[in-house]
Design a protein around this nucleic acid. Structure first.
Lengths: 235, 235
DNA sequence: CCTCCAACTTGCGATAGCGCAACGTCGCCT
DNA sequence: AGGCGACGTTGCGCTATCGCAAGTTGGAGG
């Protein structure tokens, strides 16, 4: 249970612009937690303990229905926070945060986090802005799920993931996450089968390249065309 | 543009437990706005101006897709806030707030609201808790849309609405909102046709009573059974 | 290098829900 | 009182998507 150096914190959005004193205080209140691939930072239903900011590795937030169906809420990359909602609203964690590879995060328990926000109002307002922007994402996904067809939802999911974790590489943008067909299905509200079929089609058309837990977007423009239902670019 | 009396504010969740001085300050910063049935407090795409708390009437929050499809995000009853997300995240309003009947709300512009939160930290933490709980609602609806069938989504929507605006009356709980089939469809991600068919079925089974923009839940237990996919109660 | 398992693919029905069209009906407005 | 527009219903055909079963494939670990 080491303490993170305060200089490390300034890389993260949530703490950007904090002065040195504030960062030291924030760092002093934090704990560091390391988790193996496949293990969880927290599990849905557990009483809320900490709010985290991921420093290394990748994580996946999921929610399960009473009857065992799973939904992927979002992926977390270094610098992003998770467990905010729980630590503000209290009660039990509404979802599970699972490490996809060996991962490490800084954590603050509910009281510590509230204390820090009281002491550093800028942190409070940044947290709110963060929460508000997540809220918008959800509203948008909601609207998509309610109105759009699977094909478009998957195309959008890929574009969003590319924005979050895309790395340029020869012949396209690779989504730098261990992303299975199952994940993609649970992220866009469909089944593995449908995802697989659609990706096969796109691969044949040269729009994407696929592999095991690996997707490269070769022709982003065409994917956007699908996502937005534009006339397919002829070139 | 009158000022609301500070005593009125204490009825609202967001301001509960504020001391008299705080309420006076909050009231002093507020403006009152009256809107006719069918008119909007704000329209999606407009630059963000105010955060509101509804004091009279009912309102509906909707979002439209680029191609004109509409989604109902939620209904607002007196005492509830709307436009919070926008006023915290800035930018344009992500949705439209339309009055369903003559309505009235207190409003604070972004700066005023932030100022108040800085001056009254309890208000800030309550706003965050509110945002966090809305967030959970969205996560849940998302999961529903992704995994559940229309029938259950509609049953849940009705139960939620009953919780929010239900009034006991002879023979059941009436949803005290001008709720059209179209609204219900846009709320649960389906079409008017499907809603109409299902409600007809439930009416025939005695589970609900329906009318124009009017729904009474006669056998809540049976509706829960549908929502949760329990074995139908035999009695 | 081999083995084994999770990940992925594909064919083939089955069906929930869509979407149009045509028609009923309520209630507001003049 | 009457007419008109919004709201609601229902029949019917269609198809996007599901869900199973039966495969194939890749790569991690021995």
């Amino acid at each position: 249970m080491t303490r993170p150096a305060s200089e490390l914190l300034e890389k993260f959005d949530l703490f950007a612009d904090r002065d040195a004193g504030a960062l030291v205080a924030i760092a002093a209140a934090a704990l560091t937690r390391r988790v193996e691939a496949g293990d969880a930072f927290f599990v849905q239903g557990e009483p809320t303990a900490c709010f985290y900011v991921l420093s290394k590795g990748r994580a996946r937030l999921t929610q399960v229905t009473p009857d065992g169906q799973q939904v992927v809420v979002r992926f977390i990359t270094p610098g992003e926070g998770f467990g905010i909602v729980a630590s503000l609203a209290g009660g039990d964690y509404p979802l599970t945060a699972e490490a996809l590879e060996p991962a490490e995060a800084y954590g603050w328990d509910g009281e510590a986090f509230k204390g820090l926000m009281a002491a550093h109002p800028e942190l409070a307002s940044r947290s709110m802005a963060l929460l508000a922007s997540r809220m918008r994402e959800f509203q948008d996904r909601n609207r998509e799920l309610a109105t759009e067809r699977v094909e478009r939802r998957i195309a959008r999911a890929l574009l969003r993931l590319a924005g979050q974790s895309g790395v340029r590489e020869s012949g396209g943008v690779r989504i730098d996450l261990p992303l299975s067909r199952q994940d993609l299905a649970e992220l866009s509200g469909t089944t593995v089968f449908t995802v697989s079929r659609l990706l096969s089609g796109w691969e044949a058309a040269g729009i994407v390249g696929t592999g095991r837990k690996r997707i490269v977007i070769r022709r982003p423009h065409d994917l956007v065309a699908i996502a937005e239902d534009l006339p397919p670019a002829t070139h």
